[in-house]
């Protein structure tokens, strides 16, 4: 191999940071109401919160085309969690859009998409990770950070582990399925300030990984922050 080994100040790979001239649009909640939480998820970082039944979580794609990988659990019983196949089978469609009910592995509603500014949201593309990166891009990418690392880190804060990680949502990511079954992550169809809003149908724990992937277009090769807002509608 022709790789040049240079001395680094840290052996921990430093995550990619968005270019300084990236347009950032912090936007505002998509659904009116009292703001109960307003936080920024830094590029590459994990995040979680509980959302009580009736409250609305707005996720802002601040820099545009930044994948927000997302898992949802029943706050009282984590064995009941977001399920891609149940969500898709109940609605008879492979894509997530406004009014999609995000269902659990028991088929029950966890959250509902009540606002959406992107034509099509993804839930079939899964999460990136060190191990899957070796298949997709080569073993030289295994040192990089991934959503699976973020999910495991954040899950541990709630007493959850590898067995609790299942197929996820990817807000603002674009994964078309073509007639011959071809499927893949392509250039995004979101943009700075675009939002999705999901209403909790019961008390839920939401885990998000602000995707660090730099080997495909899911973050526009420029990981940017996410803004997370929880609102209580009707109390404004």
């Amino acid at each position: 191999m022709n790789t040049t080994i240079e001395t680094a100040t840290s052996t921990v790979p430093v995550g990619a940071v968005h270019t300084p001239d990236s347009p950032l649009d912090w936007s505002e909640p998509l659904v009116a109401g009292t703001v109960l939480l307003d936080e920024v998820v830094a590029p590459n970082a994990p995040w979680s919160t509980t959302v009580a039944a009736g409250q609305v979580l707005t996720i802002v794609d601040v820099g545009g085309n930044q994948s927000a990988d997302c898992l949802i659990f029943d706050a009282a019983n984590a064995d009941e969690r977001y399920s891609v196949p149940d969500t898709l089978a109940w609605q008879g469609n492979a894509y997530v859009r406004e009014s999609t009910v995000l269902r659990s592995n028991l088929g029950r509603p966890l959250m509902t998409v009540v606002g959406n500014e992107v034509a099509r949201q993804d839930t079939i593309g899964g999460a990136c990770g060190k191990e899957s990166n070796t298949l997709r891009y080569g073993h030289h990418t295994a040192f990089q950070h991934g959503c699976r690392e973020n999910f495991l880190t954040e899950a541990a804060r709630h007493g959850l582990g590898a067995r609790d990680l299942v197929s996820n949502l990817n807000w603002f990511m674009n994964v078309p399925v073509e007639a011959d079954g071809s499927l893949g992550i392509v250039d995004g169809i979101s943009g700075p300030g675009k939002r999705v809003a999901v209403r909790a149908e019961r008390d839920v724990l939401v885990l998000v990984s602000n995707c660090p992937q730099m080997n495909n277009p899911c973050n526009d090769f420029n990981p940017t922050p996410l803004r997370m807002l929880v609102t209580a509608p009707g109390l404004a």
């Binding site: 079939i124 899964g126 893949g184």
Partner: peptide, 25 residues
């Protein structure tokens, strides 16, 4: 891991030759 089983081969439909992948690569 169904997502990796579809995404990594760039193919959503299962058929001869398709690997059933775990989430561990």
């Amino acid at each position: 891991n169904v997502a990796d089983t579809q995404k990594i081969p760039w193919q959503a439909y299962l058929g001869a030759g398709h690997p059933l992948l775990s989430g561990d690569g």
